[in-house]
Write a protein that binds this DNA or RNA. Sequence first.
DNA 1: TTTACTGCAAATCTTTTGCATCAAC
DNA 2: GTTGATGCAAAAGATTTGCAGTAAA
Lengths: 140, 140
Amino acid sequence: MNQSGHIADLLGKQGYRLTPQRLMVVSAIENSDDHISAEEIYSQVVARYPNVNISTVYRTLELLKRLSLVTETDLEGGRVRYHPADKGHHHHLVCQECGAIIDLDESLLEPLQDALLREHNFIADLRHLAIHGRCVRCGR
Amino acid sequence: MNQSGHIADLLGKQGYRLTPQRLMVVSAIENSDDHISAEEIYSQVVARYPNVNISTVYRTLELLKRLSLVTETDLEGGRVRYHPADKGHHHHLVCQECGAIIDLDESLLEPLQDALLREHNFIADLRHLAIHGRCVRCGR
DNA sequence: TTTACTGCAAATCTTTTGCATCAAC
DNA sequence: GTTGATGCAAAAGATTTGCAGTAAA
């Protein structure tokens, strides 16, 4: 299980250079409570290091994805969000009304996963599923 | 239950002008076996009516969405797909390896829908869920 | 010193918008 | 004849890329 700062270690061990830009991108992702977008990461990094470029953020995210250190999810449409790959709970209920994002317990999806395997021989990758609908407050 | 051509009727009855461009966009959606993208609709329309503009396609889709005559789904990322709103509920298994799209029976998702309502008071809109993973042929 | 990484600017791709013209009603 | 719909061109938003300079190792 990765602790804070682990992603940077892994990068270093694999021979990737630990530039301040990369470290700040990684730390933004690790310190985010929830999924974070490229733009949000960029804002955080720029605050301390004003001349970083957003393309560096994207290139770092690309690298982290390739190494399976972060996962990307498309919770909205048109803006992808990132999240450390080993930080559990990757299911979300997204309210179409108010935009609220509710974390979903993994166990609720196990029966579905089993059924898909049984009836369709389909190995479902349910690590980052987003289910849209209406939350309690927004009712129907 | 809408028959072929019904969307155009509905548009007309609501006072929207039945331009050839609109009719062709609507017909492309109605005749598509599966979900169709804006770009694909555009190609079909341009083939017969070479000077239509893709912005017209988007404007028509926008209108049809607003009137709940078509539904949009985000099966991939970065490109949305369209589908007549009343053409049954589609769930898809999307193979990450070969891209195959397998239609999924609605009943498999009912338990999940119930569980979400029960445990989170969340009214899930599972009309167009896409589940990614690996199909039989691509194994794991 | 080497070459991976970065910043910058420009390109891409999808979708949206302003505006003058045009055609469905 | 009106007014809503279209075409065009340009903008917008997210992401990618080419290239020459820079700094991590």
